[in-house]
């Protein structure tokens, strides 16, 4: 139990560090941004209570917000992503006793379901972030283009993370 908590905590710190020091400064083709810290929310076990999931997600978003001077943007997006996590997961995986306590990884639910789950989460998050950040500035077309770029980049990076963390255990 303690080992699991510790490994999630290490992952949390590592993801946020890499996000604020590396990925915050990378914009592919000057539009596509990757959000790698949402891998923490995506990979938290489903056995976790929704309240705890919400708390951890809000904390993640809040810390990223403070580091990147985007107050509220990631906090709000992470909170909404957390509440949508279970419905999205069960849209691709049958709801039964086994999946109720599962960790969403490639190993446990298979490539196809995992990719679909991951892609949906990335798309929701990107759309949320850009809608909130550009709310009063840009038009819908710009928001959609940037969200699409971010979704693809985020999906690829998170899939790579999924493979890495899966192999480690």
């Amino acid at each position: 139990m303690i080992k699991t908590v510790l490994s999630y905590f290490l992952m949390f710190v590592l993801l946020i560090l890499v996000q604020v020091l590396v990925f915050n400064h990378i914009a592919l083709f000057s539009i596509a941004i990757a959000f790698i810290f949402i891998y923490f929310i995506i990979s938290l076990p489903l056995s976790l209570s929704t309240n705890l999931l919400l708390l951890l997600s809000f904390a993640t978003g809040f810390i990223v917000d403070v580091f990147s001077d985007t107050p509220g943007v990631n906090s709000l997006s992470c909170t909404i992503l957390a509440i949508l996590k279970r419905p999205v997961f069960y849209a691709y995986v049958p709801r039964d006793d086994k999946t109720k306590v599962m960790n969403p990884t490639i190993m446990t639910i298979g490539w196809a379901a995992y990719s679909k789950y991951l892609f949906t989460m990335c798309a929701i998050y990107s759309l949320l972030v850009f809608s909130i950040e550009y709310f009063s500035f840009a038009d819908v077309k710009d928001i959609l283009i940037m969200s699409l770029g971010a979704t693809l980049f985020t999906f690829i990076v998170n899939l790579a993370l999924g493979c890495i963390f899966d192999r480690k255990g």
């Binding site: 978003g61 509220g72 906090s75 909404i80």
Partner: peptide
């Protein structure tokens, strides 16, 4: 949490 985010 939504309220806190919106305040920020």
């Amino acid at each position: 949490f939504v309220l806190l985010s919106c305040i920020m």
